Simulated scan of single mutants.
Amino acid sequence: MANFEGVHVALVTPFTTNYEVDYERMTELCNWLIDKGVDGLIPVGSLGEYTTLEDEERAQVVETVIEAANGRVPVVVGTGAPSTSKVIKWAEHAKASGAAGLMALPPINYNPLEEEVIQHFKELSNVGLPVIAYNNPRDYPTDLTPDLLRKISAFENIVSVKEFSGDIRRVHDILDQTNLEVMIGVDDLAFEGAIAGASGWISGVPNILPQEGKKLFEMGQNGAIEDGLRLYRELLPLFHYDAEPQLVQSIKHMMELGDMDCGPTRPPRLPLSKKHYEKIERDFQRAKNYSILQ
């Protein structure tokens, strides 16, 4: 069995209208998602606006999610930070708080040497929790290629990769060339990823459509191609927003439409245009209408 199988939601961080972290809403969101059947929760990732959180807020978000999950599903904690020492600090905090695993980017501030990437993940492995390496060459300078992943997977606790390159061929190459599990990281490859052998999906839009997301991924894993494609094509317009730089604003607007409002995004992320939101509303209604009919 995979370390982190199924649909793991990359959580948004709820804010009040005054941009304060809404920990009560965070607890409500976690309970709702678990009740809807998601397989895991991932706080303080990119979708969770971790870069806007003060250290005290970030620590409390992690602790709030782990307390809300209460062992019902695993909590994998994002460790993104400017230096390896800060990444390790957040990894150790996650471990002490009861996390089941870590999600870890390579060094993020500059284009590192291969040996620096390898040393970075070696230190993460030494923390003693299973690590999902996060490959996102769209937004960060390092591409964790299959060859590089093979090298860092030599460390005991590097067990999986969140694959966000947007190239479905990577799933096949990683499974062929490494011993890592693959978790799809971009929503609009979720169905193809499951078919290709990904064991999990670190998902964005399932913050508000968790049952649809879980059903879709299971269809892909089980080879239910015809039924899966019908559902996938209704969800796909929404999934495309997850692959855009404005994914946080878009998904938070979906949550507002779905009666799970988690407040605004913190600057520098500002509200998007009325035209953008109107398109989300049309796409969301399409997905909900299809879902209601099933």
Rank of each mutant, 00 (worst) to 15 (best):
T142D: 02
E67R: 12
D227G: 10
K95H: 07
L235R: 02
G37N: 06
D39V: 02
A196L: 15
E54Q: 06
E63D: 13
I158M: 01
N70R: 03
Y134H: 10
T64A: 10
S273Q: 11
L216F: 12
P107N: 11
H120T: 11
L53F: 01
P112K: 04
I195L: 15
V127K: 03
G40F: 04
E20M: 07
G197P: 13
E57G: 00
D39H: 13
G101L: 05
S160W: 05
A59T: 10
N222V: 04
A91H: 05
D283P: 03
P106G: 13
K214D: 11
L53W: 03
T84C: 07
N289M: 09
T84E: 03
H240Q: 13
G228F: 12
S199V: 15
E114A: 00
E226R: 14
I184T: 11
A91G: 10
C30I: 07
Y241F: 11
A198L: 08
L33M: 09
K89E: 15
L272D: 15
G37R: 08
S97I: 03
N70H: 10
E115H: 11
R266C: 09
M260Q: 14
L148S: 04
G98H: 01
Y23E: 13
V21G: 09
L29F: 02
I174S: 10
E244V: 07
D188S: 12
K36R: 12
V7P: 01
V77H: 03
A68P: 04
G258I: 04
E54L: 10
Y19E: 14
H276Q: 15
Y140V: 02
Q285G: 04
C30V: 15
I292M: 14
D22V: 11
P112G: 05
K275C: 01
E114L: 00
G213V: 06
D139T: 08
S46R: 01
V44Q: 05
A196R: 14
E57N: 00
M255V: 03
L124R: 07
P107G: 10
P267C: 09
P137E: 02
G197H: 10
P14V: 08
A68H: 05
E278Q: 15
W32C: 07
E63I: 05
T51F: 10
Y140D: 01
S273G: 13
K288A: 08
A194P: 15
V87Q: 02
P112M: 01
R58S: 10
I42A: 11
I88R: 00
N111P: 07
V159E: 04
D167M: 07
M183Y: 01
K215W: 12
F15E: 14
F4T: 08
E226Q: 14
D188W: 01
E63W: 00
N135I: 11
L270Y: 09
D188H: 11
K95L: 02
S273R: 06
P106L: 05
E49I: 03
E281C: 03
A68M: 02
L236V: 00
A100Q: 07
L47I: 12
V182Y: 10
F217P: 13
P137G: 01
N111D: 14
L235P: 05
